[in-house]
Simulated assay, not measured.
Amino acid sequence: MGFISTSIARKVAMALSGLFLVFFLGQHFVINISSVIDPDTFNSWSHFMGTNGLVQFLLQPVLIFGVVFHFIMGFILEYQNRKARAINYKSYKGNSNSSWASRNMLISGVVILAFLGLHFYDFWVPEIVHKYIETHPEDPSRYFPELVHKFESPVRVGLYTLAFILLIFHLWHGFSSSFQSVGFNNKYSRALKGFTRLYAVLIPLGFVFIALYHHFNQLPH
C-alpha cells in the first residue's frame, strides 16, 4: 500500500473513505425514512436495492470495503498519533486542547464498527439466506414487515439508539475534518462546517426517530 505510505496520504485516504460513508449514510436514511412516510415506497426501494445486481455485487462489496478500510486507517492514525506524542497532556484542562469528540474518535469508532457488524449480520445475512440458501420466491412486499419486526425488542432499539448517539459525536468532528484533510479551505469553509454539524446531528437522530417510531407503533394501545 505504497500510495498511503505517508502520514498525509493516510489522512487523505481516511477522509475520502469517511466522506464516502457519509454519502452512503444519507442514502440509507432516505430509504429508511420512507418506511415512516409510505411503506409501499419503502418496499419498492428496498426491493430494488435487494435485487439489483449492480447494488448487490458491486456497490455492496465496495461499501463493506469502505467501512473496513476507514476503521483500519483510523486505528493506524491513532496509533501513530499516540506514538509521536511527546507530552501526555499533563496540563490538559477540559476542552482547552481539543473537544471530547476529537479525543474519543477511536472509542466512538469502535462502538459504531461493532454496531455496523451487527447491522450487516442482522439485515444482510438474513437477506442472503432468504434469497440464496432457502431460495424463497421474490416478495416485494416483505421488506416493511421485516423492518418493523427488527424494532420490536426494546433492547435492540436501545442499542440502536446508543450507536447513533455516538455516531453524532463521531461525525461532529470527523465530517468537517475530512474536508480539511483533502485541502478544502476557502470562503465557503465556514458554511460547510455549519452544514456538517447540522448533518452530524439530524441524520443520526433521524435514524433514532425511525427506530422509536416503529417500536412504539407496535405497542398495544
Rank of each mutant, 00 (worst) to 15 (best):
P220N: 04
Y188W: 10
I210R: 06
F69G: 01
S178P: 07
D38K: 13
T6H: 09
N185E: 14
Y121W: 12
Y89I: 04
L19A: 05
L106Y: 10
Y160W: 14
E78Y: 11
R190H: 12
V125S: 04
T161R: 00
L58H: 01
G206Q: 05
Y213D: 12
V155R: 06
A15V: 13
L116T: 10
T196A: 12
S141I: 02
F175L: 15
D40P: 00
L167Q: 08
I168Y: 05
I4F: 15
V125Q: 10
F144T: 00
Q180K: 12
G174P: 00
P220S: 09
I8Q: 07
Y199V: 09
S178I: 09
E78P: 02
G53Y: 09
L59S: 07
V201Y: 10
K187P: 11
H170R: 08
S176N: 06
L118F: 11
T51Y: 11
F164P: 09
A84I: 02
H215E: 04
W100N: 02
V12P: 06
S98M: 14
V62I: 15
L192N: 06
T41L: 15
H47Q: 11
A13Y: 05
I133M: 07
V30N: 03
L205C: 15
S7A: 04
H119G: 08
K83S: 08
F207S: 02
M14Q: 07
F23P: 02
L171S: 03
G53T: 13
I33T: 03
Y79K: 10
A211Q: 03
G183E: 11
K93E: 07
V36M: 15
G74V: 09
P154L: 14
L162G: 14
V55Y: 02
M1C: 04
N104A: 00
H130S: 12
K90M: 06
L21A: 04
F75Y: 15
V201C: 04
Y132E: 01
R142M: 03
Y143T: 00
F23Q: 00
S141N: 09
F164G: 07
R85N: 09
R156Y: 11
Q56N: 09
W172R: 03
G66V: 04
F42H: 13
Y188V: 12
M73R: 01
H47G: 00
K187T: 15
A200M: 14
G94M: 01
F151N: 03
V22G: 09
L147I: 01
F3M: 03
Y188C: 09
N81K: 08
S178Y: 07
G174Y: 06
S98D: 13
Y121R: 14
D38G: 05
I87C: 05
L202C: 13
N43P: 09
K187Q: 13
Y188T: 08
E127L: 12
L25I: 09
V129S: 03
F29R: 04
